[in-house]
């Protein structure tokens, strides 16, 4: 049985935008090591907020428990405490060691080659594993693209490079925000397949934010559901892990 890799309990975040306040509350969310999850729902349901919180890019207003347990039985990291401490250096260190990111249009740096883009997280961790880089590029079918600049790649190839970059430093958790939104259906299918396969093969936990439930379902991603609620008078979302086998719709997440 897989251990949990991320545990959240009593996490609350209030977001203010032009329209007013919007709150997201996570009563309890335990993500299992090696699991693949989908935060699926329309925009405004709170999946971006959830992803930002998981990415350590957004400070929770309140967090009773927010713990990351890295693979290999290493000591658990108390992220709630790190936020309370507020140290940018400590949060940065957790991000670069334990988290991999796949962004909507890759988020590759245009001014370095694909190989250097992929190698960057490893270099930031003072590790450089050329053999792993080549192996990942082979698994993702982009070996021929390594010497090129991102601008010379197709959008699909860029997403594959982004997956390699998210995995190079063996993170515990991979976060993907709308990784297939910019792709045509065929390329989207290939990229999603590779993302799920490769994260599973590396034993990392995957959380994908997507508006496409059908694709999420097809790739057997465990849905994280969002239920509309009022939190302190403000409109908001309550986040929960849907029971295995249930679709997001079945959990009543989509209004």
């Amino acid at each position: 049985m897989a251990d949990d890799v991320v545990r959240l309990e009593g996490v609350l975040r209030l977001r203010r935008n032009g329209a007013g306040a919007f709150a997201v509350r996570i009563e309890k969310l335990d993500l299992a090591a090696g699991g693949a999850y989908a935060a699926a729902g329309p925009s405004g349901c709170g999946k971006s907020t959830l992803l930002d919180i998981l990415a350590l890019a957004l400070r929770p207003d309140r967090a009773e428990r927010f713990v990351l347990e890295p693979a290999g039985g290493r000591e658990a990291i108390d992220i709630a405490a790190a936020w309370a401490d507020g140290s940018d250096a400590i949060l940065g260190r957790i991000r670069r060691r334990h988290i991999g990111y796949v962004l909507q249009t890759g988020g590759l740096l245009p001014f370095v080659t694909v190989a250097d883009n992929i190698a960057l997280p490893a270099r930031l961790n003072a590790r450089s594993d050329r053999a792993r880089l080549i192996a990942l590029a082979e698994r993702l079918g982009i070996v021929d693209q390594l010497a090129k600049y991102p601008a010379d790649l197709s959008v699909g190839q860029r997403q594959r490079a982004a997956i390699a970059r998210a995995l190079i430093h063996r993170p515990s958790i991979v976060l993907a925000d709308e990784p297939t939104a910019a792709l045509d259906p065929e390329a989207a299918e290939i990229v999603m397949t590779l993302l799920v396969e490769q994260t599973r093969r590396d034993g990392a936990t995957l959380v994908v934010a997507t508006h496409d439930h059908i694709r999420a379902q097809r790739h057997a991603l465990v849905p994280i559901s969002f239920a509309p609620v009022r939190i302190g008078g403000a409109p908001g979302s309550s986040v929960a892990l849907a029971p295995h086998g249930q679709s997001a719709e079945a959990a009543g997440a989509v209004p």
Partner: peptide
């Protein structure tokens, strides 16, 4: 700005 925020996201501290 986007690239710099990606660099920050990948764990590069402010300083």
């Amino acid at each position: 700005r986007r690239e710099l925020s990606v660099i920050r996201l990948l764990g590069v501290p402010r300083r």
